[in-house]
Simulated scan of single mutants.
Amino acid sequence: MQSNEAPVSMEVEAVPSKPSSASAALPPKPIFEPLKAHEMSDGRVQFRKVSVPPHRYSPLKKVWMEIYTPVYEQMKIDIRMNLKGRKVELKSRADTPDVSNLQKCSDFVQAFMLGFDVIDAIALLRMDELYVESFEIKDVKTLRGEHLSRAIGRLSGKGGKTKFAIENATKTRIVIADTKIHILGSFANIKVARDSLCSLILGSPAGKVYSKLRAVTARLAERF
């Protein structure tokens, strides 16, 4: 038996929801000041020591103020020369703005000790993507006697012509200290300069290295 009553439809009226008083009464978000360098290290003072080679002692005395001024005034790092231990000592301060400043200053002083000019080494303080790479001629090829002397001569060129050409093409700075080679620059540029120097050590003529260097630097310029 079926019922003849029609189903009753219920209409529900939508009532706009009011914001809860709890969410409206939330306090504003706290604003925390960034931690200072000495607070990140729990107030501990950090040190770095850089040894001074005998042949860099006199040049260091001549340009001491050029090294001291940016380290102390701009990077807010204490620096002194320990005459007894022949070391440059660096120390963080309470007003050091960044924890990385101490390491940057240490790299800057170390670059000068390796033979770079202050004008070139100071770029390590201002740019983050620069670093120094070092290697020896014997790491590339074992050479002795006159063969080693000729390899060093090929690296420098007449009057330093070859070294300057590689520096200008790769935007790096190169120091050739006896059998050790130090390169200051960015990662990609150091790789190009190192490849060119290794080719010279292995006996490639300078003309061939120049042509290859021009091709590689042209590709790098297109990429960036």
Rank of each mutant, 00 (worst) to 15 (best):
R154V: 11
F187L: 07
F164P: 02
T162R: 02
K104F: 03
L130R: 00
G43Q: 09
G160W: 11
L184H: 08
F32H: 13
R144T: 13
I190M: 06
R223Q: 08
Y210K: 14
P205V: 03
A177P: 02
A14S: 12
K84W: 02
D120F: 02
V132I: 15
G159Q: 05
L90R: 02
S9A: 14
I77M: 04
P27Y: 15
S51L: 13
V88Q: 04
H147F: 05
V192P: 07
T170L: 02
R150D: 04
E129G: 00
G157D: 06
V132P: 08
A151R: 01
N82L: 03
K18I: 10
M113Y: 05
K163R: 14
S106R: 03
M127A: 13
A37D: 11
V71E: 00
L60Y: 08
V99P: 00
L114M: 14
G185D: 00
R86Q: 11
H55A: 06
K29E: 09
K212H: 14
K76E: 07
R93D: 04
V99R: 01
L102E: 11
G207I: 15
M75I: 13
P28L: 07
T172E: 08
K61V: 13
Y57N: 03
G115C: 11
V132C: 10
E39V: 02
N101E: 09
T142M: 09
S23A: 12
L35R: 11
R223S: 11
F164K: 13
G43E: 06
F47C: 03
A165F: 15
E133R: 15
F135V: 03
G185R: 02
S41Y: 15
E146D: 10
I31G: 06
P27K: 14
E33L: 01
F47E: 08
A94Y: 13
S199P: 04
Y131C: 07
V52L: 04
K208T: 12
L114H: 11
N189T: 07
Q110Y: 10
R150M: 09
I181C: 03
E167Y: 14
S20D: 09
V216Q: 08
G203C: 05
I176E: 01
G85K: 05
V216A: 13
F187W: 07
R86G: 03
N82A: 06
G43L: 08
A169L: 05
M113I: 03
V99E: 05
I183W: 00
I122T: 10
E136P: 04
A111F: 01
K62W: 10
I137M: 09
F224K: 14
A193C: 05
V209T: 10
S3T: 12
M40W: 10
V45M: 13
V118K: 04
D128K: 10
S149F: 04
S106F: 04
V15N: 12
